[in-house]
Design a protein around this nucleic acid. Structure first.
Length: 484
RNA sequence: GACCCCAUGGUCUAGAGGCCUAGGACAUCACCCUUUCAAGGUGGUAACCCGGGUUCGAAUCCCGGUGGGGUCGCCA
């Protein structure tokens, strides 16, 4: 039974790198009919951020990544908070101490910082000197009450090999690892130690995580070996880098799942986009559901190279989902954005109809909402370049004539509207377009949008006529200045 | 700096020695369609980091260089 986990530290929000790692874990589990587990690595109480755990869970859920076991849903391998597994960590720590595979180190942070500075000055690799490693059992310091950390007694010779499922064997010299810390002076375990026990106790079969963990893996393997525990399989997925090729950070704009949501990216689209960062389907399919992806997904098609995310393609992906998803889903997603535009849906045409009309011209929910706005709110401004191009001295007269004709219409649909415009154009001996463009601008305030007749059909007869007249008046009163 | 990973167009990628005149997608440019915009259609610009090997043959294998990234914490 395949068991994988995503193990975030609750120190912020879910960012796209973590989301992608979670996604790969999820798909791997689904593909192999295994279990996807969420574990919260909250041992460092000092770094905890209030609400972060909830926010991350919300983020994962929004992306469709549901876990089979976790802090909220429980499971047979709990607890799923690392902080609640302390007793187990301490017992294992004692075991290593007793076996002489770990030792107490009384060096102070200041001494260590000094040591590091010295090593760096000498251009030597910064590594713990092992000063406390050789202290005899009866060294009085052991009973002095002096604070200590516990360090791993790393073999001075030999190599440790990480058998990485994506990269193959990766060899590290043990001597360059240094005697790393297993537990802090307050007795709490450090990541490289706790993670080993947690993964083992939770029967994790595959540790799939970001590449930044590759260098830490030999340390963890040493712990597995010292404790005589079977190793899981390891797979390190490439990182996601910002457009400037550096590690993701706040200064790169939107990096969190939440921020993309606020920018009007559908979670469905974000998930699909993230999937393509470092993985590709055997037949190059790009748009696919999680279910489809799970059928195909495996580690052998995961890229070795870090990927740079591209907002343009994300937005394209989003535009695809905007037209693919059921109207109800779009409606649900766009609702908060409608509110932000000051739109009260009850005040205008049916939302489904409007969405159907506008969805394929929007890349984000923000654009969608903006494109929907004039159906519910009369335009307050008119695009300057449109006014220049489509309004002139004859416009008010023509708009009034149009309003008159349209108000006479007994049938209000696309075809009758078109016929009315054709008749009016013929009467004036102008092209139909010469009426269409000013009308669109007069009614919506914009030069772009759905086909005019579809638009007017949805907007309704009375509202259309009113707006035509209102704009004519506005021009006459000088509120809008047409091109002479 | 040491160690580790990586290297196909601007970006995401296909490619597991001959199928490659290097394929797809986003972006970009042009044209078509057209009541605008978008969509769609057609076409174009654009890549195997460099140098050595191995081989009849290398984007694919090996070595070196260069470049990028990661890790070196009483963070995870």
């Amino acid at each position: 039974m395949v068991r994988v986990r995503y193990a975030p530290s609750p120190t912020g929000t879910l960012h796209i790198g973590g989301a992608r790692t979670a996604l790969f874990n999820y798909l791997f589990a689904r593909h192999h009919h295994g279990r996807f587990i969420l574990r919260v690595e909250d041992t460092d109480q000092a770094r905890l951020v209030e609400g972060s755990e909830e926010s991350m869970m919300r983020g994962l859920k929004s992306l469709g990544l549901v876990w089979d076991e976790g802090p909220d849903v429980g499971g047979d391998y709990g607890p799923y908070h690392q902080s609640e597994r302390l007793a187990r960590h301490k017992a294992a720590l004692q075991q290593l101490l007793d076996a002489g595979q770990a030792y107490r180190c009384y060096c102070t942070p200041e001494e260590l910082a000094e040591e590091r500075a010295r090593q760096e000055a000498l251009k030597q690799p910064p590594r713990y000197s092992g000063k406390c490693r050789m202290r005899p059992q009866d060294d009085p310091i052991h009973t002095s009450g002096k604070p200590f950390v516990v360090r791993m007694k790393v073999p001075e010779e030999g190599t440790t090999v990480v058998q990485d499922l994506i990269r193959g064997p990766v060899t590290f010299e043990n001597r360059i690892l240094g005697d790393f810390v297993l537990a802090k002076s307050d007795g709490t375990p450090v990541y490289n130690f706790a993670v080993v026990l947690d993964d083992y106790d939770m029967a994790i079969t595959h540790v799939i995580r970001g590449e930044e963990h590759l260098s830490n893996t030999p340390k963890q393997i040493l712990v597995y070996q010292a404790l005589n525990l079977d190793l899981p399989a390891f797979a390190h997925v490439p990182m996601i880098l910002a457009p400037d090729h550096t590690k993701l950070s706040k200064r790169h704009g939107a990096t969190s799942v939440e921020e993309y949501r606020q920018q009007g990216i559908l979670p469905e689209a974000l998930t699909n986009y993230l999937l393509l960062l470092g993985w590709s389907a055997p037949d190059d399919t790009e748009i696919m559901t999680l279910e489809q992806a799970a059928q195909w997904f495996d580690l052998d098609r995961v890229q070795h190279t870090a990927a740079i995310y591209d907002i343009k393609k994300l937005e394209w992906m989003n535009s695809q989902y905007l037209r693919l998803l059921p109207v109800d889903r779009i409606k649900e997603a766009v609702t908060p954005f409608l509110a932000a535009e000051g739109i009260v849906p009850e005040s205008g045409p049916d939302l489904d109809t409007v969405i159907a009309l506008v969805r394929e011209r929007a890349r984000t929910l923000v654009e969608l909402a903006q494109g929907m706005a004039y159906f519910y709110v009369r335009p307050q401004t008119f695009e300057a370049k449109g006014v220049q191009k489509h309004f002139d001295a004859t416009t008010p007269e023509r708009l009034r004539a149009l309003a008159e004709v349209l108000s006479q219409l007994s049938t209000w649909d696309h075809d009758s509207l078109m016929a009315a415009y054709d008749a009016e154009a013929a009467r004036l001996e102008v092209k139909r377009a010469a009426l269409i463009h000013p009308s669109r601008l007069a009614v919506t305030g914009r030069t772009v949008g759905p086909g005019l007749f579809e638009l007017l059909e949805v907007l309704g007869q009375k509202e259309t006529v009113d707006r035509l007249l209102e704009t004519a008046t506005a021009i006459e009163n000088g509120h809008i200045t047409p091109t002479p």
